[in-house]
């Protein structure tokens, strides 16, 4: 009798959670049939938050690349949608193409920024976001601070537009979650976490660190770009200062740190919390932002692993954990 070590199957709890997630996704996709326009609008925003949180968590939580400049891709995506629509492309195809075109900018950028380490990378991303915003503001199409509306989208019937954008947001959130789950459960997940823990050691066990970091960087950029196009589609008007605002990074940081950095489910919970706080206290103006800061501080002091850490302590295991456990399988070998 010999023993072989194989990758453990997905746990029963995780299977139940995936099943519940699929049922919830089905419910969300059917919501326009019975939900009010206000609820549809609000849930579109929640989906955008989920996409942003999951994308930033991929970068910072799993590959250790803390960026405060992901708004570069949010703003760029909106700009490309405007440009494509201006060139005659129909608005909905332009929304998809705008997000994809962002990859053409993110790919060459990755050759430069991924050579930088830790704080250098974070600051470089912020500087790049500001530099791109400044350049875009010179484009007469955008009209500087004034901005411009996505006129062709505005011409579509409001109910139809709202439903289509909502369905795109739900489908995008499902896609981003499914892709990140698949990637993180696979080889790329282990490689990115190894880089996060010790990049030189990762190289010394054969991980092509630049390939892994670039893959994660591009997926995260695409996620932010999708969120950017959805945001433009819901707001209709594109204003560079808002599209490239640092508040996007602040929201991403809040959602991921409060939800649970480096976990799969944490960013989704963080997005739900941010959404709930905005709904409850959004009318209090600046006080609402102060409140968000206080919540973040309380979590940093008393629950540094975020909501997912509290749940893990209670359950004894992290739900939908990306940990790869091994099972021992006994087998009889031929004589």
């Amino acid at each position: 009798m010999s023993h072989t070590h194989v990758l453990a199957a997905v746990s029963r709890l995780d299977k139940v959670l995936i099943g519940l997630g699929a049922a919830l996704a089905g419910l969300l996709l059917a919501l326009p049939l019975f939900g009010s326009p206000l609820i549809v609008d609000k849930l579109t925003l929640l989906m955008i938050y989920i996409i942003l949180a999951v994308s930033w968590n991929l970068l910072a939580g799993f590959a250790g690349l803390v960026s405060v400049g992901q708004q570069a891709f949010i703003g760029l995506a909106g700009y490309f949608v405007l440009r494509l629509a201006e060139a005659g492309m129909a608005p909905f195809p332009a929304l998809i193409a705008g997000a994809v075109v962002v990859l053409l900018v993110a790919w060459p950028l990755s050759w430069f920024v991924l050579r930088l380490k830790a704080a250098e990378f974070a600051v470089a991303m912020w500087v790049l976001a500001e530099a791109i915003r400044s350049v875009i503001m010179f484009d007469p199409l955008v009209q500087g601070e004034t901005g411009r509306s996505l006129v062709t989208l505005n011409a579509i019937d409001a109910d139809l537009r709202r439903t289509a954008i909502y369905l795109m947001a739900v489908a995008s959130a499902i896609l981003v979650l499914a892709v990140s789950y698949r990637l993180l459960r696979g080889r790329l997940g282990g490689e990115s976490q190894a880089i996060r823990d010790d990049e030189e050691a990762a190289g010394s066990v054969g991980v092509s660190t630049m390939r892994v970091k670039r893959t994660i960087f591009l997926i995260s950029a695409l996620g932010c770009a999708i969120a950017g196009t959805l945001w433009l589609a819901s707001a209709i008007t594109y204003q560079p200062r808002a599209a490239f605002g640092i508040n996007w990074s602040v929201f991403m940081l809040f959602m991921v740190l409060v939800g649970g950095l480096g976990s799969f489910l944490g960013p989704v919970l963080g997005a739900l919390l941010l959404f709930a706080l905005q709904e409850a206290f959004g009318d209090f103006g600046a006080w609402y932002l102060t409140g968000i800061g206080c919540v973040a501080m309380l979590f940093a002091l008393y629950a540094p692993r975020g909501i997912i850490g509290l749940i893990t302590d209670r359950l004894g295991r992290e739900p939908l954990s990306m940990r790869k456990e091994l099972d021992v399988r006994s087998e009889r070998r031929g004589r």
């Binding site: 080889r187 282990g190 490689e191 190894a194 010790d198 990762a202 066990v205």
Partner: peptide, 22 residues
């Protein structure tokens, strides 16, 4: 390497798997 330089937040199995896969 000197100082072992393990992937501290990953389990022993995960440390070994990364090397085996690459």
């Amino acid at each position: 390497p000197e100082g072992r330089r393990l992937f501290a937040d990953m389990t022993v199995a995960e440390n070994l798997r990364v090397a085996a896969e690459n």
